[in-house]
Design a protein around this nucleic acid. Structure first.
Lengths: 150, 150
DNA sequence: GAAGATTGACTGTTCAATCTTT
DNA sequence: AAAGATTGAACAGTCAATCTTC
């Protein structure tokens, strides 16, 4: 149908890109300055810390993560290298590994989680009322519904 | 200061990341499938096409671009390689180059602009009313204001 | 010395190809 | 053949160092 986008649709898209970038830079920058690893690492640590026995298969991780991580193998490699995660074999299906969180990993997840929360409060919570934040989340959720095929 | 982020702030942040990613993947994917270069190229082409005589200094480009492009030198190199842009010397200040758009570049900008508009309509315009899109843009703009130092 | 810009080295991402197990 | 995962090669992004001109 190639209807022309309204000025408001375009403005929403532009603002979305700019706001996401500005906030991501600010929040990830704060965490980095505090000595924490990138947010993609946090995503993995958070999902692992919530999983039963602290481990998941890579394919499960991919599905759950906030930041879509194509190169998950290498990300896990780096986290294993840093001793935040370990790899183990899956006994029942030898195709699938498990990735587990270490004690160090749990520790980093907790500390980083606090810093992350503080950063979200500073960069989001302090600028919007609770009702506005809720409204924003609702509008953004609507955008994620698949587009029609026309 | 270090107030706990409300659930709504966190939800807004999470939705922001996810919606931006989902839409960016969808929109950039459509353009790519249609044979167009990345959106970062489009940003450069758009700014150049709007500039007087179709050229700008790299530093000006950096300021205007939608997608913050740290490695602008190399991006311009690739566009020059693809014959969408040219480099020229600035006669009055020899530190500064100019980056100019070629005729091919103008052509690509126009065609890509149409496809981009259609994609925005499909992925944003079709999911929100005009009023909702406007509201969303307003809320996102509020997020870009600098955080307090506390 | 400061501004505009590029370069080199490093890190991270992407895509296709591959390998193993089911 | 399909699913789960890894690897290699190409590509892009980042940071500090550098170079030139002002």
């Amino acid at each position: 149908m190639a209807r022309r986008p309204s000025a408001n649709s375009t403005a929403a898209w532009t603002s979305l890109i700019r706001a996401q970038h500005a906030l991501m830079d600010a929040i990830e920058g704060e965490l980095k300055d505090a000595g924490f690893p990138p947010l993609s690492w946090y995503d993995v640590l958070l999902e692992l810390s919530r999983a039963p026995r602290g481990s998941l298969r890579p394919v499960e991780l991919e599905k759950r993560m906030l930041l879509p991580q194509y190169g998950l193998s290498r990300l896990i490699d780096r986290m294993v290298e840093a001793e935040l995660a370990v790899r183990t074999q899956c006994p029942v299906d030898k195709r699938g590994n498990f990735v587990g969180i270490t004690e160090t990993g749990r520790d980093v997840q907790k500390k980083m989680g606090s810093a992350y929360s503080a950063a979200i409060e500073r960069h989001v919570g302090s600028k919007l009322t609770d009702v506005e934040a809720q409204k924003l989340a609702q509008l953004l959720e609507r955008l994620k519904t698949p587009a029609s095929v026309h």
